[in-house]
Every structure is written in C-alpha cells, then in structure tokens.
Design a binder for these strands. Structure first.
Lengths: 350, 350
DNA sequence: CGATGTTGTGACAACGATGTCTAATCGTTA
DNA sequence: TAACGATTAGACATCGTTGTCACAACATCG
C-alpha cells in the first residue's frame, strides 16, 4: 500500500459529500460548516468564505432529513395532500393554490390520489406520517376520520377540504354547497320554471347530499311539492348521467329545467339535451364551472366553486396551526357564485 | 417526590413514541422492535406479538427519515416531479399516471409547478435534492439543464418529460411532436386545402418548434411554397391566439384551414372562428386533446397526446434507473394520434 | 492590571433508526 | 454428557446533522 486514502476525501464521481468533507476541505470544524449553511451568526467573514468555497467546490448540499432529525421542533418542511385525484381539474386547482401559498415558506407538497378508496386514504395518511410531514390537507373519503385522532391529538396540523370530516373535530374548508344549489333553484324559479329535475351524485358523498338538500329545500320554500320533484341520485359518471337525463326528458310531462350537481353529471345532461335537440329549450345549470362552458351552444350557466380560494384558505389555516394556533377547530365556508351564460336563463317553453 | 417518571414512558397526549418507548413497553431491546417493524426474520412469534401489541398501544409509527439515514442505500422512497403547472390538465394526467406506477412500490411523489421560470426550476430541484429524493422527473424550462450534471453523475435517477433536456445526456420521454403536426398537415392536404395557417406557441419552447417544423416540412413535401404559409408564433394564451386568428381570417385571401399547436391557442382560434361565424367553413385541427372537444359545434379534430402513457413510461424508466439500470441515456417517443371529429374534415369553401 | 465581557470556534452528545457483532438459550448429535 | 449449530436477542457504533457547552483569543472596563 502506497497511499493512505483519506476517509473523508470526497470521491466526486459517486459519493455525496457530507459536512465532514466540507469541513475537512475548508479546514474548520463541522459545527462551523453547519453554522454557515444555516446562516447562523457567530462566524467570521473569512471563515464563512472558506466554507462556502469548499461547499461549492464539492457541490455540497445540506441533508434536510438528517437536520430535522436533530433539530428541535423536527420540522421537515413538507406536507401531505390527499385529493380525489390529482388529475381532477377541481382538485388540481386546489393543489396549485396550496402549493403557491406554501412555497413562500419553502414547504414541499406530497400529493396523492384517493380514487374513492377508504383503504387508500388510511394507507396514504400512514405513508405521509411515516415521512413525518408537518401537516396534512385531505379530502375525506372514508366513512370516518377517527383513525387520525391519535395524530391529531399529538398536534399534527390537519385541514380537511371540500368535505367535512366525520368522527373528529378538525378544521375544514368547504364550498357552500347547499347555498349554491339553492341559488340555482331560485334562479330557475325566477325564470318561471316549476317542473325542475335534479341529477345528483352518489349520496354517500357529503357534498352531494348537501347540494341536493339545498336545492330541494329552496323549491320547498317556494311552495313546490318537493316530493314530486324528479330526483335521480347515484350518478357518478357521464354515461349514467346521460341515461338518467334521457329518461327524464322522454318521460311524460318532462322537466323544463335541469340542475346537475357535478361536472361529469353536467356533461352527461348536456349530451342528452343535444341528442334530443333540446339544448335551447330546456334550462340547465351545473354545479362547478368547467373550461369552455362559455363556448357551448348555448353557453352553460353554472354555480362556480372557487378552488383557488379553497386552496389558499386551507394553506393559511394549515400554516397557522403549524405556527401553533390553538383555536378550536372550525369549518370555513367559501361562497360559490352563479355565473349566467345562457343555458340557465332559458324560460319554460309552452 | 413520590413517583419517578420513566423517561421512556410515552406521554400519549403529545410526544410521538419512538422505538425505545415500544421496546420499553414490550420489555425487549430496541433492535428487536426494529426487526419486527421491518419484517426481518429471527424473532419468535411470542416476542413479535408483544412488540406488535406495544406498538399498537402507543400508536407507534416508524420514522422513515431516521431509518433511511442509517440504512444502506439510503433510499427515501420519494421522488420529485416538476411540471409546468400541477393545474395544467396535460401535466396532471402525467402526474396521475406516474403516481399510479410508483405507488405500487410505495414511492411518494413531491409535485411542484415551474410556471416557465428557469430560476424556479433550479430552486425546486435543489429543494428536492435537499430532501434526498430517490429520483427526479422533470419538464425542463431553463435554457440548459447542465446544472444537474453533478447530481446526475452521482447516479441520481432522472427522467425528463415532454421536452428533451439541453446540455446533459439523460433519459427523456416525449410526444412525437413533429410527426403529429405533420399528420395534421397531411390531413388538411388530403381534404383539398392549400391555404393553411399555423398558429404557434413561443418558439423558445422545444415542443413548439418541433410542431412547427413538422407541420411546415410536410407542407413543403407536398409542394407548397413553405415561405408563403401564414405563420403566427409566440402565442402563449387564449387572447393572443384569438387576435392572431382574427387577423389572419379577416386579411385578404384568408386561409381555409388552421392548425393550432397547443390547447390555449386552439381555444383562441375557436373563439375567433365563432365570432366570424366561420366555425363550419374553416377547418381546424388542434394539437393536444381536451375535454368536451366532441361537444363543440363542430366537434374539434385534434392531434391527441397520451399523457398517461408518457407518465407510465417515465415511471418505468425511473424505476429501472433506481434499480441500477446503466443503459446509455435514451429518448423515448410516445406517438400521438389524429382524432377526427369534424372540424378537421371541413373542405375548402369556394 | 485583573476582572469581565464578547466573539469565534470546535468537541461532544444526541436525534431515531439500522448494520454488525457477540452472547445466551435451546435442541441435537456423537 | 460434552460439543455443536441454529435460533433469538441485545449492546454498540453509526448515518448526517444540530444543540449545548467549554474554551481560547481579544476587547473593555473600573
């Protein structure tokens, strides 16, 4: 053996350098490197330079995981986000707004899709907890969220979005589903409709139930016999909605206006109306806005939600909790908005 | 003092339990707990039970970060994904496909949006590296990706999507942009068009250049004087595209067919056509499919990309690299597909 | 001039887990 | 019954970093 290979010499080709490598190269102690990397005071400018030079030369980068292991508070600067699907436009807008609000604090976002699977919800929560996220933002799917009570009582910041959790008292940010749906009902009534149908999503989904309740109650307040309102529930995709709409529209004494409680259902209703050439004769209002709604023939009136506001508010609440806010849990309601575009303003035809 | 408080006694209310707490409660050594939690052999069934019981009682959960710190290989089971925007439908479908392919291996995905900002690209890559992700999937924005060469040569798995990287030799998964655009050109030619306009995105984007090249070259092959083809570049949003289309369509000797190289541009073109009541007289093909394209009047013919295939393939390549695949870097091309819906089949009007 | 800060720095333990190694226990076998 | 391998379990060092503390060097004060 001729040369003793220094144990802390960086092999630039493969091994990732650590603080020791930087310290050795700069000729300082490892704690000094730590101080420089974390912008802590108490390092002379000369030393600082040397450390910075060394770390650049080695292309060194701080290991956050190792750091947060030791650091008091143990923050990882990452949070977990659980959505119905990251590919769902409503969800991904929330995701985007959250990301923007959290990026300012250097917080990274783990995102995952639930696909309506309660087991997956639990598994993903566990996976994120194992990675020691600083907080969780989730759309609840499972029948109850009580399984996170242990974590929640350990002060894990948690904000539910779109739907309120069951079996646990935690913050939530939701759309005013009932109010929005009622607004649609009132709109139809104001335009002279009395035969109004409701096309709804699966009733095990809280938002779907709320929208139905708000809609029907408003009709009731106006004096309509709510028991005679044609209601089709359990529609979870375009095709089932299309068939349900076709059935309603071809029955005897068909409705003159249709409210659809969700995007895919709206699309299905639109297809049915188009097939029957009724698009310009039967009124339609959909819950949730969508791209190109204004380019349809006729343009589609909707109750628009504000995903960007939901996301921003959820981020704010989460950050507040992370910063130690101990307020009692609350549900925050983001108002929806009726956007008139034409389809909702069609009057009943004689 | 009456009672000595055990240092490792869990305060279930606040402190997260560690292996020591579990070990103490189960009356075993900490390494035994580790063995049980990791399903390692060499633990008797009786001990196993005791440990499992204790860990359930304390609601213990393994700390992956601490584990991977010591573990050989140091995998964190998380990867970083950089997209133009998580709210962009094309991007979020890729995201979803990636997630599905990686979830099977228990890999979590950090997702972030770039917003066409090269600085953000570098910052986010650094942020993910600091979290020691096992790999990176990214849409390159910056003029060059050479800044990741140090990491790449340390064998950090990396796959570029949608666009090929510049200044570094790494895997990429892209759409056959030129071929797809050429297919649109051929389609127009086959339907008798000779006055064909091109509406393009910013030319600093590789995919935009490729689409233009493919389109123009195909027209050239058919004998058209390519220098006379009306080309409008630099369109990055709906409004600029709408204005460009209006200008083209109201000029002297207007085109009888329009190709738009991107979704927002397609929307802008659709609006212009509608305003001029030319939707059914001027042919239109858009690059990239979109929701409700088949519900438009007329339905819109598109060159569809396959984001789900791009995502799946990117995940496959990333996993292969993570598993040690040392093949030379390659670019994988996912074919696009022409979907005829009506707008692209309109023949030139006399 | 000695006592007293003030700075700058590094040694050391610790964070929560795993890799290595050694030891105790047990059942088998010669 | 002594010797042996197989099985089970724990002690200890370690991963890369930060918190704590001690200490040297130097400036400041009565």
């Amino acid at each position: 053996m001729t040369t003793m290979s220094n144990r802390y010499q960086a092999d630039p080709a493969k091994n990732r350098p650590t603080m020791r490598h930087v310290a050795a190269l700069a000729g300082v102690g490892i704690k000094t490197v730590s101080r420089v990397m974390n912008d802590e005071p108490g390092v002379s400018e000369a030393t600082r330079r040397r450390v910075l030079d060394a770390s650049q030369q080695l292309n060194y980068q701080l290991d956050m995981a190792a750091g947060s292991l030791r650091r008091t508070g143990r923050q990882t600067l990452s949070i977990g986000l659980l959505l119905p699907s990251v590919a769902n436009p409503f969800s991904s807008e929330i995701h985007r707004a959250l990301e923007d609000a959290l990026a300012a604090r250097g917080i990274a976002v783990f995102a995952a899709s639930l696909d309506d699977d309660p087991e997956r919800e639990k598994a993903l929560v566990a996976a994120f907890l194992g990675r020691r996220v600083d907080g969780l933002v989730l759309t609840p799917i499972a029948r109850s969220q009580s399984y996170v009570i242990p974590e929640h009582s350990r002060d894990l910041p948690m904000v539910f979005i779109d739907r309120e959790p069951v079996g646990i008292d935690a913050d939530a940010v939701v759309t005013d589903n009932a109010v929005g749906a009622a607004r649609a009902a009132a709109h139809f009534l104001a335009h002279g409709h009395t035969k109004i149908a409701f096309l709804g999503d699966r009733t095990d989904i809280q938002t779907a139930r709320e929208r139905r309740r708000g809609f029907i109650e408003e009709l009731g307040r106006a004096g309509l016999a709510t028991s005679t309102v044609p209601v089709r529930d359990g529609l979870h995709d375009e095709e089932s909605a299309r068939l349900a709409a076709l059935e309603l529209l071809t029955a005897e004494d068909p409705p003159t206006a249709i409210f659809s409680s969700q995007n895919l259902v709206t699309f299905g209703a639109m297809r049915a109306l188009k097939e029957l050439a009724l698009s310009k004769r039967v009124a339609l209002i959909g819950f949730d806005d969508f791209t190109l709604a204004d380019m349809m023939e006729p343009a589609v009136t909707v109750i628009a939600q504000h995903p960007e506001r939901i996301g921003r508010l959820a981020a704010e609440r989460l950050l507040a909790r992370i910063d130690g806010d101990k307020q009692p849990a609350r549900t925050y309601v983001v108002p929806s908005e009726l956007i008139q575009r034409g389809s909702g303003e069609i009057r009943p035809q004689s």
